[in-house]
Structures are given as structure tokens and as C-alpha cells.
Simulated assay, not measured.
Amino acid sequence: MTQTTSTGEAEILTIKQVALYLQVTERTIYRLAASEGIPAFKVGGSWRFRRGDLDHWIAGRIGKTSSAENEGAE
């Protein structure tokens, strides 16, 4: 059986770590996770997040923001 390291896309983060990573409050992360606004899963009742999923989610949000800004500029 192989064990994954805590670096890269396989890294699992807690609410507190995600809040620090995204520079928002823990309450914001709880709200996003509960409303499925951010990729998350529960382990024993606690929210957990894969860093790779978050990075992909961020990239998608950046694309949406850029598209909306470009449409408004025309």
C-alpha cells in the first residue's frame, strides 16, 4: 500500500487551512462548502478539501471573472 505525501494536488486541507489559503474567513469556507460552492467532502462530520480541486476551482473562477469583465468592456 502506498501513502501519498502532503504536497501537491493530493494534499488534504482543513477549513482553517483553506481559509488561510484563500484569504477569507472560516465562516465563508463553511458557507461555500455547505452550499456546494466549493469542492469539498466530509470525513467524520468535518469538512476536508483537496488542494488540487481548489486550484482547479480557482482557475475556473478566474476564467469566469475575466469573461464577464471582457463582455462588459465591449
Results as ranks from 00 to 15, higher is better:
Met1Val: 11
Thr2Phe: 15
Thr2Gly: 13
Thr4Pro: 04
Thr4Glu: 06
Thr4His: 03
Thr5Met: 09
Thr5Leu: 14
Thr5Arg: 14
Thr5Gln: 11
Thr5Glu: 12
Thr7Asn: 15
Thr7His: 14
Thr7Asp: 11
Thr7Arg: 13
Thr7Met: 14
Ala10Ser: 12
Glu11Gly: 09
Glu11Cys: 15
Glu11Arg: 14
Ile12Lys: 10
Ile12Val: 12
Ile12Ser: 08
Thr14Phe: 08
Thr14Ser: 13
Thr14Asn: 07
Ile15Ala: 04
Ile15Phe: 00
Lys16Arg: 09
Lys16Gln: 07
Gln17Leu: 10
Gln17Asp: 10
Val18Ile: 00
Val18Phe: 02
Ala19Leu: 00
Leu20Cys: 08
Tyr21Cys: 07
Tyr21Phe: 09
Leu22Gln: 05
Gln23Phe: 07
Gln23His: 08
Gln23Tyr: 05
Val24Glu: 01
Glu26Asn: 06
Glu26Gly: 04
Thr28Gly: 01
Thr28Cys: 09
Thr28Asp: 06
Thr28Asn: 07
Ile29Pro: 02
Arg31Cys: 01
Arg31Glu: 01
Arg31Asp: 04
Ala33Trp: 07
Ala33Gln: 05
Ala33Tyr: 04
Ala33Ser: 08
Ser35Thr: 11
Glu36Arg: 06
Glu36Ser: 06
Glu36Asn: 04
Gly37Met: 02
Gly37Arg: 02
Ile38Gln: 09
Pro39Trp: 03
Ala40Gln: 03
Ala40Asn: 02
Ala40Val: 06
Ala40Lys: 02
Lys42Pro: 14
Gly44His: 09
Gly44Asn: 11
Gly45His: 04
Gly45Leu: 05
Ser46Lys: 10
Ser46Cys: 11
Trp47Lys: 12
Trp47Ala: 08
Arg48Glu: 02
Arg48Pro: 01
Arg48Asp: 00
Arg48Met: 07
Phe49Gln: 04
Arg50Thr: 05
Arg50Asp: 01
Arg50Cys: 03
Arg51Cys: 00
Gly52Ile: 03
Gly52Val: 04
Gly52Arg: 02
Leu54Trp: 03
Asp55Val: 00
Trp57Val: 00
Trp57Glu: 02
Ile58Pro: 09
Ile58Arg: 15
Ala59Asn: 05
Arg61Glu: 10
Arg61Met: 12
Ile62Leu: 14
Ile62Trp: 11
Gly63Gln: 01
Lys64Thr: 04
Lys64Trp: 01
Lys64Arg: 08
Thr65Met: 12
Thr65Asn: 10
Ser66Thr: 12
Ser67Ile: 13
Ser67Lys: 13
Asn70Leu: 10
Asn70Ile: 09
Glu71Asn: 10
Gly72Ile: 12
Ala73Tyr: 15
Ala73Pro: 11
Glu74Asn: 11
